[in-house]
Computed example of a mutant assay.
Amino acid sequence: MMMNLFSSFDPTSNFNFSLNWMSTLIGIMIIPPMFWLIPSRFHMLWNNIIIILHKEFKILLGSYKSQGSTLIFISLFSLILFNNFLGLFPYIFTSTSHMTMTLSLALPLWLSFMIYGWLNNSIHMLAHLVPQGTPPILMPFMVCIETISNVIRPGTLAIRLSANMIAGHLSMTLLGNTGPMMSLTLINLLIIVQILLLTLETAVAMIQSYVFAILSTLYSSEVN
C-alpha cells in the first residue's frame, strides 16, 4: 500500500543496486538489431522520423553549422522518447520523471554551450545580454534579467520534462485508486477516462521529448 502519492516513483533496489533504472538501458538491447537485420516497417518508419528531425534541426542550426550536430539532438530525442513511452507500461519505472535523469541531460548540454560560446564568441555572448533597442537607463537591469534567464535554462528544461511526466502519472494513479470504492457504472466511466488519459500521456511523451530536443537546439544556435 502506498504511504503517499509519490511513493510510486521511489526506486526499488536489490543488492544495493536500483533495479528501476535498468529500464533506461533496455533500449541498448532493442535498438542494435535494427542495424543488422533486414529493414522492417518499423525501421523504415524510424528512419523517416530521423530524416524529418534532421531537416528541422538543420534549419534551426544553420546549414553551415549542422554537419553532425543534428545527430546529438536526434539521439537526445530518441532517448527521451523511448523512456517516456516505457513509463506508460504497468510496473515499469519512468526514469524521465526524476530530476536525476532530466538534469543530467540538460546541465551538461547547457554547460557545453556556455563554455563553447564564451571561449569562441565572447563578444556575441555579451551582445546577447542586452537586446537591441534597449534604452541606456534599462541596460543594467536587462543584463541581470538576461543573465538569470540564461542560468535557469537547464533547470527549466529538466523541470518541464519531469513535471509533465509526473503530473500525468499521478492523475492516473489517483483515479485508479478510487476504483475499488466505485459502483459498476462508475467503474466503466473510470476505464474510459483512464484510456483518454493514457492517450493524452502518449501525446505528452512525444511532445515533451520533441520540446526538449528543440529547445536544446535553439540554445546551441544562440552561441554561434
Rank of each mutant, 00 (worst) to 15 (best):
S95P: 01
L138C: 11
T94V: 08
Y91H: 13
M125Y: 03
S122I: 12
S78C: 12
M139T: 15
F93S: 07
M114S: 06
P131S: 12
Q132Y: 07
P131Q: 06
C144R: 08
R153C: 08
V143S: 09
H98E: 14
W110G: 01
I115E: 00
I80P: 01
T100C: 02
H98N: 09
P154S: 13
P131I: 13
Y91P: 00
V143A: 11
P135V: 11
I145W: 15
W110V: 06
F77Q: 06
M125D: 04
L119R: 13
I137N: 14
M139C: 13
L126D: 10
M114H: 03
A106N: 04
I152A: 13
F93A: 09
F93W: 11
I115L: 13
H98Q: 11
V151R: 05
P108C: 03
G117C: 07
G155I: 14
A127I: 01
G117V: 10
L109S: 05
M125C: 11
I115K: 03
N121I: 03
G133D: 10
S97L: 06
M99D: 03
S112I: 13
L119E: 04
I152S: 12
V130H: 08
C144F: 15
P131E: 11
I80S: 02
N121H: 10
G117P: 04
F82N: 07
I115P: 00
L86E: 06
L126R: 12
S104L: 05
L129R: 03
L138R: 10
E146D: 08
I152G: 09
G87C: 03
I137S: 14
H128C: 03
P154H: 10
C144W: 10
Y116R: 05
L88Y: 03
L105N: 05
A106C: 02
T156F: 13
L107S: 02
S95R: 01
H98Y: 05
L126T: 02
I145C: 14
N120L: 09
T94G: 02
P135W: 11
M114P: 00
T156G: 05
N150G: 09
I123S: 10
C144K: 12
P154N: 13
L129G: 04
P108V: 06
S95G: 06
T102L: 06
L105K: 01
V143G: 08
G155Y: 15
G117R: 08
I115A: 12
P108W: 07
T100N: 12
P154V: 12
T96M: 10
I145D: 15
T147D: 10
L79S: 08
N84H: 09
L103M: 11
F113E: 00
Q132I: 13
P90N: 14
T147A: 15
I123D: 13
L79I: 13
F141D: 14
S149C: 14
S78I: 08
M139H: 06
F141Y: 15
H128I: 05
F113P: 00
M99Q: 09
L88H: 05
M101Q: 05
S122F: 14
F85K: 03
T102V: 07
